[in-house]
Design a protein around this nucleic acid. Sequence first.
DNA 1: TTGTACGCGTTATCAT
DNA 2: ATGATAACGCGTACAA
Lengths: 341, 341
Amino acid sequence: MKKTRVTITDIARELNIAPSTVSRALKDHPALKRETKQAVKALAKKLDYRPNLLALNLLQKKSNTIGVIVPEITSHFFSAIITGIQDVIGTSDYNIIICLSNESYDEEMTIVDKLSKIQVDGVLVSPSSETNNFDHLVRLQKSGIPVVVFDRDCPGLESDKVLVDDYSGAFQAVEYLIRSGCKKIAHLSGPINLSTAKHRLQGYLDALENNNMPIQKEYIVHVPGFSHKDGLKPTKKLLKLKDPPDAIFATNDNIAISAMHIAEKLEFRIPEDISIVGFDDQPNSSYVTPSLSTVWQPVYSIGMLSARILLHHLEEEDTKIGFRKEIFKPELVIRKSSKKI
Amino acid sequence: MKKTRVTITDIARELNIAPSTVSRALKDHPALKRETKQAVKALAKKLDYRPNLLALNLLQKKSNTIGVIVPEITSHFFSAIITGIQDVIGTSDYNIIICLSNESYDEEMTIVDKLSKIQVDGVLVSPSSETNNFDHLVRLQKSGIPVVVFDRDCPGLESDKVLVDDYSGAFQAVEYLIRSGCKKIAHLSGPINLSTAKHRLQGYLDALENNNMPIQKEYIVHVPGFSHKDGLKPTKKLLKLKDPPDAIFATNDNIAISAMHIAEKLEFRIPEDISIVGFDDQPNSSYVTPSLSTVWQPVYSIGMLSARILLHHLEEEDTKIGFRKEIFKPELVIRKSSKKI
DNA sequence: TTGTACGCGTTATCAT
DNA sequence: ATGATAACGCGTACAA
């Protein structure tokens, strides 16, 4: 059944010319008789000739493939970034292999190993929340594979980076809560190993300090992950304090939404009794009730820019002028889960 | 910088033996002196030899790559399926290339073309909502590439299929609405070109008919897509009817959530004035207020099973005993957006 | 037990 | 204007 593909040699034989001539004809080599070109092209079309990329890969020692490593893909955040990446890479001749680390350092190592085995030409990576050693990425770089880090920073790693100013986003959110009259602002913080979580926490702390507000340890609770369920217990813990907060700044929208859920169960009115602000502005956040105030970040653009930077590296062989570090500004979006100023 | 990789020939030269011997040693060929094997393996390790998969690909005429075509990836539905696929394929030696058709027939064709160019060994596909001609998939099959269709059926295409009994899911949902006392049940239906939407609509119709309820044309409205925004206008249309429905069965959760949103804006009480039921049971659906009644489907399993079936084909060369057709049963999940029975 | 020679499909280089 | 040849890295049939 599996018809064997038509090769350049088949065409050559049929036309009584050399394979190299066929190759040249197909590539519109300038020094070829028009006749020959036409004959070759005609036969190629007739025989449905398709170049064998596998052979090209071997010859050029490159796979024309880009590896993308993300912790997961079920959140809107990463899936939108990937969509951005796809939309850029899709117009090039590269293919992308998406790999999920499941927030595991070990799996991330395995993935890097696999990508290096198949000789990807470049890698886009957002590290797992467990990762704080980046030797595996350095190894990639040393073997000549450019690496672009996005969203989650890899401190100490020298590479291109496309990040978001999480600090600023958090600062804006908390300062707004302060201005709206909240006095007891809590923070549901992400896994502290993550640069993003760290910066959001710092933005929270600095906004409080800048406004001469006390920092209360019991108002800072870490969530173990980024799904709805990860926010349930931590929120309960906060709301069952003797002196519960009157505002919660959550490290992302899922957590914020589960905080809203718990708050309502415990008969807190939102935003009268408690304001809630998230981070991400994922699409469903404007459809929950009350609609969620949150910090928007340009997910799609993050993906596009990261891909563009990598592509640029791949195409302009050695225009190495140091690494780029791009930082997007997030924006506060006020909706109904928080008091008006 | 780019060190050239160590090859089998390098090892051979260093050891004064033939490359083929090295090759055999590395593969534990039975008829080789233990000494030789050990020497080769030792040196291979020392030199950090890594087989060149690109060469192997050419030799074996296969890319060890599987193509996955999905309409989009930002919904929980497809991203969870992909996670399931990944978790199965990840344990094999195959790589997966995920391609987004953006619900476009043209893009889907382009993708298929690309996948065939890079000689993927198999394809998992869920067609775009525009696709109703499957010649491009047949072409894949004819060139020896096994195709497994998942979730969205391709009527007329003979291939392995992993589907969901959408009819049953819809039937359950609507019958439940009827039992709970709803008399005027509307349906926000998906793009009618999709098998899933079609079957859900049919389930809706049959449930009504089975219960001797009238079918009212103005209660059936099609949504143009599956995002929140796609549900807004159609819902308004329904709720502004002179005789608005007292229940809405939506073709998916996003649409159901935007229906809830509109209903609340128009001061319908949920579920007192209107019951709303979705389809998918995506994670956030239990966190909206009121929590959404919906039809659960085993997304992760759909991905895993599809991948397993494809893998099976790839590994057992020609055990062709016809195509498999697996149909998962969805389950109604009652929450608070609908009246109790 | 190991070596030789060839082929996978293509292109670049050197000839003609 | 075109042909011949080598090379990319590996595996394997055949020879020794």
